[in-house]
Design a protein around this nucleic acid. Structure first.
Length: 581
RNA sequence: GCGGCCGUCGUCUAGCCUGGACUAGGACGCCGGCCUUCCACGCCGGCGAUCCCGGGUUCAAAUCCCGGCGGCCGCACCA
């Protein structure tokens, strides 16, 4: 049984996650989170919020937008066109191939944007066959990974489930920007469900058809792409595999952020900054730095909207390196497309430090005179003049004394040229975007895998205490005397402190410790006979099985400090060894 | 989607080849009780199985046949 199987089994047994709709045989690509899984995922989300939003709250804000969007949104975003692949199936061996890459490889030509029929024609004309068995290829079909639905009753209004939360940030960009009183640069974050109709998801929690994305769309001025926070991470070393090394089959290299930027491995400082944040965030979930690296996606591997993408890879036992986050430089692709498709201006006004004074020619039209002379034709003449460059008009007036419009000669009787000063206080730009984007369920799995350990045949989930779904377990050593009463009292007090905590008096104390270890409870409090004498209890550390003894009142004071990482376990009391040992 | 392997209590499994005594057995876990002064102790009891689903063959199907669904691995696909 490999680690993945052990975790899946533990998850099912203890209520962390399992396959959805089991009673109907299950459906691939969907999972339920159980009581513990829900807590774990929420703790990961909370940590993410703190790490990416709270710490940057002066310029990163969180929003929520719908899961369903009308067709137009995905026409604009390019997903209807690009989130699909033309696929051909070999008639004899039934293997499937991407039609476009097959042709591009064989004929060494670019067939981007061609229709399925055109691709099929090329395949027929060039007698392209199955590269595996040399069999004949069938019809070119399209796979679109968007889930489709209908908005409203009996409606023609087609909608789609979003494949990423990002579009919500783009479509509402202007509102958020204004609500934040034109804060710029600005990051908009969202945690939400997305859906992708994967062709064949078969890696449990790793490839889901519906999952949670945590992402930031960070909007900045492409003319000022510097990140003021980059100094904080400039000297940080990261493991990175740039595209140019990847194509040579080389391994990731360990370099500083500064070097990565200098060598243009990473093309934007903000992108680099968020990559380091992500490196640390995943480390906080229990993944060591040497089990992570950033891999650049090659042009043909990238999504349609990105000019550079790094995937943050984490090593897992079963599948090797898997992607837990993507870091894409999306440029102004999305905003520009939404401007074009919606007709709304999504640009941002950037004031200059000092207004620029520009001298400019202006044509003054004496409309009244012009109308009197040319009657009906006047309107047309005026609009033509207005759409002509003032410089051109001035030049013609100077040389010829008139300009010719609509077959009429217009001289200085009707128009005159003057020079005006124009004060330009800034310019409008379409922001560029970098996007760090995490898959929450994958992080849940990765966190579990790195927390999983065994000791003396027992499972111990060494979850970071921030992530542990249950923080404290309270046990009476035996069900005798007043021990259960005191333990229950402690349990009630801890609940009032907003901790997740549980009380257990069943079976032997050893069994109860084992049960608690298995779901990663960091601290177990045991009420024993000594408690009756001096009001002290033992606290047991999940990872070392060591115990300390502390007065009950001290427990309430010190536990919060422990969970805030202000003190470590051994500061919770004085070392304690049980007598029987 | 193809090929290989697989699908029985919560979990792991026995039974399947060679159809019938299977009311589907066990272990672990879970629940209750007893016991118990610190690491899955012991004893008693209990709950717990659409034998993946549907169809067929048969007097009789967990067992044989067909179809489907789901899982794992490989290919392909996807990020």
């Amino acid at each position: 049984m490999d680690l993945y199987e052990k975790i899946v089994e533990l998850a099912r047994r203890r209520g962390i996650f399992w396959q959805s709709y089991e009673i109907y045989g299950g459906v691939a690509g969907f999972i339920d989170l159980g009581p513990l899984g829900t807590l774990i995922k929420r703790n990961i989300e909370t940590l993410w919020r703190e790490w990416f939003i709270l710490r940057h709250q002066e310029f990163i804000v969180e929003i929520e937008t719908p899961i369903i969007a009308p067709k137009k949104v995905f026409e604009a975003s390019g997903h209807l066109e690009h989130f699909t692949d033309p696929i051909v199936e070999c008639i004899s061996c039934h293997r499937k191939f991407r039609a476009d890459t097959l042709i591009e490889e064989k004929l060494n030509t670019n067939v981007e944007g061609l229709s399925n029929e055109e691709l099929e024609k090329i395949i027929r004309e060039n007698d392209i066959r199955c590269p595996i068995c040399n069999g004949e290829l069938g019809k070119v079909k399209t796979f679109n990974l968007l889930f489709q639905t209908i908005i409203g009753p009996y409606s023609e209004n087609i909608g789609f489930l979003r494949p990423e939360t990002a579009q919500g940030m783009f479509t509402s960009f202007k509102r958020v920007y204004e609500a934040m009183r034109n804060k710029f640069p600005i990051g908009i974050a969202q945690i939400g469900r997305v859906a992708r109709n994967e062709i064949s998801p078969r890696q449990g929690m790793i490839r889901l058809r519906e999952f949670t994305i945590m992402e930031v769309e960070f909007f900045f001025n492409p003319k000022k792409p510097e990140c003021p926070l980059i100094d904080k991470v400039r000297d940080r070393k990261i493991l990175i595999l740039p595209g140019e090394l990847k194509v040579k089959g080389e391994k990731p290299i360990k370099i500083t952020v500064e070097e990565a930027l200098r060598e243009k491995y990473i093309i934007n400082e903000w992108l680099a900054y968020f990559m380091v944040q992500s490196y640390d965030f995943v480390n906080k979930l229990g993944v060591p730095y040497d089990k992570q690296y950033f891999e650049e996606k090659l042009p043909h591997e990238r999504a349609h909207y990105a000019t550079q993408t790094f995937d943050q890879m984490v090593k897992v036992e079963r599948w090797g390196w898997i992607e837990v986050s993507g870091h894409a430089y999306r440029t102004d692709y999305d905003l520009s497309r939404h401007m074009k498709y919606s007709g709304h201006d999504l640009s941002v006004f950037i004031p200059y430090e000092k207004p620029v004074i520009k001298r400019k020619l202006k044509i003054a039209i004496k409309e009244k005179v012009l109308r009197e002379t040319f009657k009906d034709k006047a309107a047309k003449i005026i609009s033509t003049i207005k759409s002509t460059l003032p410089e051109t008009i001035a030049n013609e007036l100077k040389t010829k004394g008139y300009i010719e419009v609509e077959g009429e000669k217009i001289n200085s009787k009707y128009i005159s040229v003057c020079e005006v000063e124009e004060k330009i206080s800034g310019e409008r730009i379409v922001p560029h975007v970098v996007e760090p984007s995490f898959g929450a369920e994958r992080l849940v799995y990765v966190t579990l895998e790195y927390a999983y350990s065994e000791r003396e045949g027992r499972v111990i989930l060494k979850l970071p205490k921030r992530i542990a779904p249950i923080k404290v377990a309270v046990f009476p050593l035996v069900v005798r005397s007043r021990l259960p009463d005191i333990a229950k009292e402690i349990y009630e007090r801890l609940k009032e402190m907003n901790l997740t905590v549980y009380y257990d008096e069943s079976g032997s104390i050893g069994r109860r410790y084992a049960r608690a270890d298995e779901i990663g409870v960091p601290i177990a409090i045991t009420v024993d006979y000594q408690t009756l004498e001096d009001n002290t209890v033992t606290l047991r550390d999940r990872d070392t099985w060591k115990q300390v003894r502390t007065p009950i009142e001290e427990v309430y004071r010190k536990l919060p400090l422990y969970f805030e990482d202000k003190i470590d376990f051994f500061k919770l009391g004085t070392p304690y060894e049980s007598k029987s040992k």
